[in-house]
Structure formats: structure tokens, C-alpha cells
Design a binder for these strands. Structure first.
Lengths: 205, 205
DNA sequence: AGTGGCTGGATAGCGATACTATCCAACATA
DNA sequence: TATGTTGGATAGTATCGCTATCCAGCCACT
């Protein structure tokens, strides 16, 4: 498959595919001469992944690149790889001018919430910062997360997470990719379902 | 409160506040002379809301404007207002060149999923399109939503939605705002909790 | 009455993001 | 040999979300 066919099949313009190649999001094809390379199914899948992360999950290109490189080059430990990859998904950390915050203990709302749920509090994890920001914003604007609402949400989220974990493939490499893609691509599903559930309940009342 | 104090209190630059005024996101202050207006708490709250919708929920400015105007100018029926406001939150519908799709029956995956859950299928509702896109993307990329995963998610999401509904204020006006803000601002909380739950479970295994 | 600073209003510019367009010489294919 | 595509490079474009500048009016203070 030549590059123009790849682009056409993926529904992208040829310059766009070249752009992704240039950025390293898409690995180069198998060079067949100085002016021709061949691309395969893996490239097509890669393009679909890129577009899904961009269009459906809403990640900016550089975040997509970080996710892909985390998947491609596993770290020493699986835990570390996963942290790196999921960290790259963080949607809300442009960060203050300073640095990415090793300013631990700066997440009082998140800490309180996590303690109330009896979960593990680790300020290094980006989701803690996200939780803090989300809780603060909700409270600021007049729709705070009351303890019982938080408890309800926590209970159901934990149940869903247990399901996810039970489905994780046993092989470490596959598990990483599964975890990252599942984290990212099931989020829009979850949000859409929540809105539909609201709609469903509102309509029948 | 003058505009410069408003900007300082809200943590925004003065040109930014002027920009929001210009776009109509922030209502004009009470004019006190040709060159001075006064702003109150409502303006401060509005600015916080704008920033929360932008920074935490991640909406582009024009979507923020649509949400605010839906809240500000209720339609004839509350149902309609709510639909308009929540529709404005849709994160993934730049739409094809054609039009916004009255192409009903175009959401097979969503339809199957909603039928399996026994919920109400209404293709007019934007969340249906989102669900379709999300399911298609997940399947495309190799992490499909299997029926039992969908059933699990649906069950828990429905339980959370029931809690939300039980907490809705009785007065119609307040209910609209509550519903819109709750929909928007609790989403980031939900996502952060999901990631934390994964983290919590992964850490203890 | 004079001076400095802030105001509403308008317009222009800027930096980042995500492409898109153009050009080129080296080939491939017919 | 004619036509077309390729990899590679560079420059241009559109949009977004501000940001900067300018202006004349006006207020508060001296």
C-alpha cells in the first residue's frame, strides 16, 4: 500500500499523513526505493488510533504523541509505563509557569474526597490534580460534590473499575495498551451514557 | 466594583474581561456614567463559571456562550431549554459540511446499545451521536464495548443518574441551571474518579 | 482649573495549533 | 519517453483565544 492509498483509505488528506509522519506519530513505511515506501495494516490502525484520540477523546496532537510513545517504548516497569501513558492523557494540566507540581499536599479537596472513599492517596498521580481542579470548580460555581454524592459516585466508579481490571489481558505488553486505550476511549462512552441516563430518566418522569 | 477590580478579583487580565464583555459572555455592568460601570457578585460568579466551563470542562468559547445563553433565556418548555443547554455541551459535533444531521437512524451502534439497556432511544438527542462516535472509535481501535461491559457501565451510570435526579431542586428555573452545571461540572469529577479507581485497584494488586 | 488615572469602545496584533499548499528532484510505471 | 507519484523540505493558512494599543470622556484629587 502506497502512501496515497493509505491516506485515502484512512479518510485523510495526503499532506496530513505526511504531517503525522513528520511528527513521528506514524512510523515510516518500509522503504522500497528512494522515492517509495510501503505501508501496511499497522499504519492504518495507527492512523485510526490517532484520529480517535484527537477527535473523540479530544487530545491535542502533542498529547497524542506522548501517549503513542508511551505505548511504543515501555519503561522499565509496567507500572511506570502505565503512569506515563495515562499521565499523558491528562486533559487539564497546562501547568502554571513554575513547573509540574511536586508541590505535594496541595490538593486538599481531593485528599478529603479520597480519604472519605478509603482509596489510596498519591499526590504524584495526575488524576489527583484533576480531581482537585474538578471539585474546586464545581464548588466555585455552585454545584458542589456533597459527601453522599461523592460516596455514590465512588461506589459505582469502583465497581466499573473492577470490571475493567477483571478484563485486562494477562500479557504485560497487551495489558499496557489495553489499559491506556481503555482509559482513553471508554471515557467518551461513559460520558455519553451518563447524559443518556439523565435524558432517559427525565423523559419518563 | 469597577471593571479593573472585577478582573483582579477574578484573576483575569482586564483585556480578557473586556473581551468577554464584547462577546456577550459577561453582561454589561450598571452604567454609572459614560465612562464607568459597576459590577457585582453576579459578574464575579459569571466569570468563575466561564473559566470553569473553559478550563475544567474544556469547552471552546463559543460553546460556553451557547450554554450561557441557554441558561439565560429559557425556552418555552423546561425540557427544551435543557436540551438546548446540554446540547451546547456536546464536545464532539463540529458536524460534516452538510448540516447537523436530521439523518435519523444513522446510529446503529448507539441504537443497539441503548436497546440492550432498555433505555429510551431518541436520535434527536446529541448524546446519541456522541455515543455512536465513542462506540465506533473504541471498536475501531481494538477496545470495543462488549455487551456485558456495556451492561455494567449502564447499570452504574443509571444509578448515579438517579441520585442526580433525586437532588434536583423543585423550582424549574433553578433546576435548569442545576442540571446544566451538574452535567458539565461533574463530568470531570467522574473521569478523575475513574482514573483514581483504576490506580487504586492497580496499586493494591 | 489642572493633572493623573481609569473607563468604555474600537481595532489591530500575536502566539499557538493543526494542518495545507507548493516545490523539488528522484524515481516508477506505461 | 511521457506521466505520475514519492519522500523531503519549507512556507503559508485558518482558527482560536486572547493581548496590546489607541482614543476621548470623565472622575477624583489638589
Amino acid at each position: 500500500m502506497r502512501i496515497s492509498e493509505l491516506a485515502r483509505t484512512a479518510g485523510l488528506s495526503l499532506p496530513t499523513v505526511k504531517y503525522y509522519l513528520r511528527l513521528g506519530l506514524l512510523p515510516a513505511g518500509r522503504a522500497v526505493s528512494a522515492t517509495e515506501s510501503r505501508y501496511g495494516d499497522q499504519h492504518l490502525r495507527r492512523l485510526r488510533l490517532i484520529r480517535a484520540l484527537r477527535d473523540v477523546v479530544g487530545l491535542p496532537i502533542d498529547r497524542v504523541a506522548a501517549v503513542l510513545s508511551a505505548i511504543d517504548e515501555p519503561s522499565d516497569t509496567a507500572y511506570d509505563t502505565l503512569g506515563r501513558a495515562v499521565g499523558a492523557l491528562s486533559t487539564s494540566s497546562p501547568g502554571q509557569p513554575g513547573d509540574e507540581g511536586p508541590a505535594a499536599g496541595e490538593f486538599p479537596l481531593a485528599r478529603t474526597a479520597i480519604d472519605a472513599l478509603g482509596w489510596t492517596y498519591d499526590p504524584e498521580y495526575p488524576a489527583v490534580g484533576q480531581l482537585q481542579a474538578a471539585l474546586a470548580a464545581a464548588a466555585d460555581v455552585g454545584v458542589p460534590m456533597e459527601p453522599d454524592r461523592l460516596a455514590t459516585m465512588g461506589e459505582h466508579v469502583l465497581a466499573m473499575a473492577e470490571f475493567d481490571l477483571s478484563r485486562m489481558p494477562p500479557e504485560p505488553d497487551a495489558a499496557i495498551e489495553y489499559a491506556v486505550l481503555g482509559t482513553a476511549l471508554h471515557e467518551p462512552v461513559l460520558l455519553a451514557l451518563r447524559r443518556l441516563a439523565h435524558q432517559h430518566l427525565a423523559a419518563r418522569s
